[in-house]
Amino acid sequence: MRQSTATYILIFVFLTAGIFIKNPFILNMVSLSALTVITVLGLNLLLGYAGQVSLGHAGFVAMGAYISSILSIKTGLNPWLSIAIASAITTVVAAFIGYPTLKLKGHYLAMATLAIGEIIYMLANNLITLTGGHQGLTGIPMLSIGNFTFDSEKKFYFFSWAVVLLFAFVSNRIINSHYGRALKAIHEKEAAAKSFGVNVHLYKVAIFSLSAFYAAISGGLYAFYIGFISPSSFSLLKSIDYIVMAFVGGIDSIFGSIITTVILGSLPNILTSLQDFWPIVNGGLLVVAAMFMTRGLGGLIKWKRNTF
């Protein structure tokens, strides 16, 4: 089977499951996982296709969440428009960070994004008049289309997985185009790729900005779904969670990432008593994946390739 087909089937399974799940706790948990999937899909593009690590994706999620919420609360702007503006700003900021750092060796981007993530985290904590500080921001309106408001777990469940479908579709289209081929060339043979006519630096900056865009959209939707945001949802540990999900799921595997994200996103909510062990589990997963299966779970499956 082609990986893209398997991915769409998987998403449709989640969508149909929504019809039968009654328990709001589970619906909520899997909806939140869906939002996380969007961020992880973006991170996948960066890891798997530009070969770079971002330690600050929680910061981009935070930018999406905070900017859109503040716009919507303080100026009364339409939530959808707020999310669009917040995501655009986040994308530009990412391009700004990526431009100098992506000319350098791999760990520069990791460190620069770590710094950005921390800066955004500290701003969220300290710009109290705008962000509410560590107590957070409340009164974020709900999303609605016309008279239809996403006011129940069930409604948002379908909506969130529909968004996953949209972003998985976009990722698939890019990966399976000439851009995907060029990105794979950059990942494997960067210097030679230039001589194939690939503008390596431009593509790296573009893919990094795109991945920040995914994260910002995810953050914006999160804010308007929960109605409340506080800095603790966007800490460095979240950025590392995203890396674990993307890397263990398979850096170039959308299918593997979705499964891993839903599992790793849900487990801490189910096994709450094991909370203190979670950093060790996450770290252990990263170590095992980095040492023994760099293609991740998705790499264990032999996919049929796209042919023309």
Binding site: L47, G51, Q52, V53, L55, K105, G106, H107, A110, I240, I243, F247, I251, D276, F277, W278, P279, I280, N282, G283, G284, L285, L286, V287, A289, A290, M291, T294
Partner: peptide
């Protein structure tokens, strides 16, 4: 590879921190 080594040391950092 560079990417794997970066991710590996991040994992080790998490284990040390958690422990």
């Amino acid at each position: 590879q560079e990417l794997a080594l970066i991710v590996l040391t991040i994992g080790i950092a998490m284990i040390l921190r958690g422990t």
